[in-house]
């Protein structure tokens, strides 16, 4: 009797959910029947995010596969692991073509900045040494504000996690020597606000070859292992030993149809005289994820080629107003 009561109670009540963003941990109680969209909207409202279309809630499903929560399905119907609280990472899922043209709100830019910086420092994105130093100088400006020669404590930067380890290992330089180089550029960013420095960071980072690419392990008909890269602009095919320069690219505008059948994935070009590109992935689950990313990126690609919606126009006007107001305040100071 008690047992059946417990089950009934569970099915009508709520369950604890933890959502980890790159700068906060949020805890909610979600109704048992809540959809992915209910949770996603709750997170966006809580952090004041309106440019919601770039983001998603990521989790490892009960089979250990990385998944994005579907918005139109119940949270509980998506193979989430039986852990308490149920935990999701709120992350950038789609990238714009140009950060400075498209990202409007400060909170959006900040979340992009944190995620891209983490990917560079973890070496998920290859970053050449010179770009690593320049990026570090913007990261320092964003964190500490203007360089001040009189109050600057030598060693401050040397102790920070500012450069990818691979870059440090490539040179015979002491921490102080790295600090000196970063400092030269840090000093050059004087008067830049946090959001300006973070935007400059993103402007440099978006030129890196691996920025904004979702890589998948695939093979072609000849069983040659390759990488498929899904990006804001289209699909890239890379040779296994070179994730930087694609061997072939398909812009979204050149693709007529994308589909999969079990482990086989088919890309049909607009030009009907061109052959279809067929590849194989290791799991159907992976093909589902690839298709989901293709659809999302293609939607955004099409949307960018139309006039801004009323909501985006308002958001841009508000952001512009807010920035000029702050600029006037800073000038007064």
């Amino acid at each position: 009797m008690a047992f059946s009561f417990l089950i009934r109670k569970k099915s009508t009540k709520s369950f604890p959910v933890k959502v980890i963003t790159l700068d906060a941990e949020l805890e909610f109680n979600l109704e048992w029947r809540a959809t992915g969209r209910d949770l996603f909207d709750l997170v966006c409202r809580t952090i004041g995010l309106r440019e919601t279309w770039y983001f998603g809630l990521q989790y490892q499903d009960s089979k250990g596969f990385m998944s994005w929560l579907k918005l139109d399905k119940k949270v509980h119907d998506q193979g989430i692991p039986q852990q308490i609280p149920t935990t999701f990472n709120f992350l950038v899922k789609f990238y714009p073509e140009d950060v400075s043209e498209e990202l409007v709100q400060e909170v959006t830019q900040h979340l992009f900045y944190l995620q891209v910086k983490q990917a560079i420092l973890r070496m998920d994105i290859y970053c050449p040494p010179e770009a690593s130093v320049l990026l570090a100088s913007y990261a320092v400006q964003a964190k500490y504000g203007d360089y001040d020669e009189t109050s600057y404590q030598p060693g401050l930067l040397a102790s920070e996690d500012l450069l990818p380890q691979r870059v440090i290992d490539q040179y015979q330089m002491t921490p102080e020597m790295w600090e000196d180089r970063i400092k030269i550029w840090y000093a050059d960013h004087k008067t830049m606000s946090r959001d300006e420095a973070e935007m400059e960071y993103l402007k440099v980072a978006q030129d890196l070859d691996m920025y904004g690419v979702n890589y998948f392990d695939i093979s072609n008909k000849k069983e040659t292992n390759l990488w498929l890269g899904v990006t804001a602009l289209g699909l890239n095919i890379y040779e296994k030993e070179n994730k930087l320069a694609p061997k072939t690219t398909f812009a979204w505008s050149e693709i007529r149809h994308i589909s999969f059948d079990d482990k086989k994935f088919i890309i049909k070009p607009v030009d009907k005289t061109s052959p279809n590109f067929v590849f194989f992935s290791q799991k159907v689950r992976m093909n589902k994820l690839i298709l989901d990313l293709c659809i999302g990126n293609h939607d955004l690609f099409m949307r960018r080629r139309k006039p801004d919606s009323m909501e985006v126009q308002q958001m841009k006007a508000q952001a512009k107003e807010e920035r000029s107001r702050r600029q006037i305040e800073r000038n007064k100071l």
């Binding site: 400075s100 040494p129 010179e130 770009a131 130093v133 320049l134 290992d169 490539q170 040179y171 015979q172 330089m173 020597m177 180089r181 550029w185 050059d188 008067t191 830049m192 606000s193 300006e196 935007m199 400059e200 402007k203 440099v204």
Partner: peptide, 27 residues
């Protein structure tokens, strides 16, 4: 305060040159 891509290209070239003498052999 926004930086042009020209600024960034120049900065990257200058940093590259300043690091050059310290590269590990084969680096």
């Amino acid at each position: 305060n926004t930086r042009s891509s020209g600024y960034h290209q120049k900065a990257l070239a200058e940093i590259r040159n300043s690091l050059l003498p310290f590269a590990n052999s084969g680096g």
